[in-house]
């Protein structure tokens, strides 16, 4: 019976592949609603020049506004302005926050010659601690996890003394963190030297 069975024909995949904006994540034709229009345009022009032409050419823009009443056009323009201003403000706020934030990489002696490295402050740079902890673990082939600190926040604790490696890794991978904002600390256990 087996040889009368039809071999399953390989189906041509039907799934469309849609390009999404590298800045605001929407389909580029919707970038105008995202509040980061200028950045989106720069990105699209570089990444997909032909798509940029299609969406932002003078004719396309004219066709886009022709169907709106003058009133609606005015309202839309005002709305877009407000959105852009908001986005700019938020961006500025985030930039300030990052400029004033410090990532602390602390070498902590757990036992004699046993160290862990505690990294705190990454969240101010918009990083997902869990994700970064996983990356550390992979990169340094060691245990790495997110733990709560008594002050209420969270930090990443990596097994072993990898302070320098972590600094290097962060500077390499997360360019948003300025070198001056990384602080290396050595937390030596007070030697019980009495006796």
């Amino acid at each position: 019976m087996a040889d009368t069975e039809q071999p399953e024909l390989p189906h041509e995949p039907q799934s469309r592949h849609v390009t999404y904006c590298g800045v605001c994540t929407l389909p580029p034709e919707y970038c105008e609603y995202g509040g980061t229009v200028k950045k989106c345009q720069d990105w699209l022009q570089k990444a997909h020049p032909s798509m940029y032409e299609k969406i932002w050419s003078a004719e396309a823009l004219e066709a886009a506004t022709a169907s709106l009443s003058v009133e609606a056009q005015k309202r839309a323009a005002k709305d877009a302005q407000k959105k852009a201003a908001q986005a700019e403000k938020a961006e500025q706020k985030q930039a300030d926050r990052m400029a004033n934030s410090v990532v602390t990489i602390k070498r902590v002696e757990r036992n004699k010659r046993k160290y862990v490295t505690a990294v705190s402050g990454l969240e101010a740079f918009g990083l997902d601690l869990k994700k970064v902890a996983k990356e550390f673990g992979k990169k340094f082939a060691t245990g790495s996890s997110v733990t709560k600190v008594p002050s209420g926040g969270e930090e990443i604790v990596v097994q072993g003394d990898v302070s320098d490696e972590i600094e290097e890794f962060l500077l390499e991978k997360y360019k948003d963190i300025p070198e001056d904002n990384i602080e290396l600390v050595d937390d030596k256990k007070k030697k019980a030297s009495a006796g």
Partner: peptide, 19 residues
């Protein structure tokens, strides 16, 4: 939906309603 647009019933809004 973007991958398989014709598989889902749809309606269309005018440009002014998008925002």
């Amino acid at each position: 939906v973007h991958r398989f647009p014709d598989a889902f019933p749809s309606i269309r809004i005018d440009r002014g309603a998008i925002r």
